[in-house]
């Protein structure tokens, strides 16, 4: 970019050539970045292309990006095989919706207590909360497995929802937003006779909708893509979530790369489409949680 702006500019410092140079450098930058961007999505394109081929054509070279005879029945095998993929979708939706809505509720209540109320041991409790964020989930995996086994929770979807219903990160995030809301607002409401439940639900929550949305998106993404917990806690294939279902499908069909890619497309493309449609909120949410967290 610098080469493009500099070389002629040094010799002829005219105003017109300078803006032309800036244009030229922007064009070079654009071409370069588009090339890299295409490189980034090439694995997706290959995946889609391979999913529509015959098994023998998957690795053909040079790569035929648009299959001659699209094998749509590959998808039939994925969607209507012995372990149909829609089952995994249903499970993933239950887990994601369940855990995310509970996290929003608990984090919002907790965030209100930490951000807006005074109570004994507040500092101690808050610090121990922060300390919890440091614990890697892998440390808790084994004892949780044993506990859930005793509780009879193993191999149920509950095991992926209830233990993930509280989030130190979420509480911490929302507390940060609630703290920024001026005290006058809630004090005025108290004078008007409003209780804390009312202030929380009618003033604080509506005012921090972007923060809630951000937490919703990031929690949903974590639950949707979680692999380790389902892998350890689930047994029956009919309980599998999408990542585990895809893993299972890959192992069942090792030699059939076309079917595997059809399953991979099935597992990823709907979420990618959802992302493309709601991109604005998605990106804002990820940036918001990233910077605050």
């Amino acid at each position: 970019m610098d080469i493009a702006t500099k070389q002629p500019g040094v010799l002829k410092p005219k105003v017109g050539s300078r803006s032309q140079n800036i244009m030229a450098s922007r064009v070079v930058l654009t071409v370069l970045m588009f090339a890299l961007g295409i490189l980034m999505i090439l694995p997706f394109l290959w995946m889609i292309s391979a999913s529509l081929k015959l098994q023998i054509d998957v690795f053909e070279f040079p790569i035929r990006w648009i299959p001659e005879n699209p094998q749509w029945q590959n998808y039939e095998r994925v969607w209507a095989g012995r372990y149909p993929f829609y089952r995994f979708y249903v499970n993933s939706i239950i887990v994601t919706v369940g855990a995310t809505s509970l996290v929003l509720l608990t984090a919002s209540l907790g965030g209100y207590a930490f951000g807006k109320l005074d109570f004994p041991f507040k500092e101690t409790l808050f610090l121990s909360y922060l300390a919890m964020m440091m614990i890697p989930p892998q440390v808790l995996l084994i004892p949780r497995f044993i506990m859930f086994n005793w509780m009879g929770w193993l191999d149920t979807l509950t095991v992926l929802i209830i233990p993930n219903a509280v989030s130190a990160f979420g509480t911490f995030l929302l507390r940060g937003f609630y703290e920024q809301i001026p005290k006058d607002l809630s004090e005025a409401a108290i004078i008007d006779g409003a209780g804390h439940v009312r202030i929380w639900s009618r003033i604080i929550m509506p005012l921090t909708r972007p923060a809630m949305l951000a937490l919703m998106i990031i929690s949903a993404m974590w639950r949707w893509n979680d692999y380790l917990q389902p892998l350890v806690f689930l047994r029956r294939v009919t309980n599998y979530t999408i990542p585990l279902g895809l893993d299972f499908f890959v192992q069942e069909n090792t030699a059939q790369m076309n079917l595997i890619m059809a399953a991979a497309v099935t597992a990823t493309i709907p979420l990618l489409l959802l992302f493309l449609i709601t991109q604005k909120y998605f990106i804002r949410g990820i940036v918001l949680t990233g910077i605050k967290g």
Binding site: G37, F44, M47, V58, N225, L246, A264, A267
Partner: peptide, 21 residues
């Protein structure tokens, strides 16, 4: 968007595709 798409894809799908590549 093109750069960000792999990040929202589950690692299982990422691994599956790269396994083939």
């Amino acid at each position: 968007t093109m750069f960000f798409m792999p990040h929202i894809t589950s690692l299982v799908a990422v691994a599956t595709v790269w396994l083939a590549l």
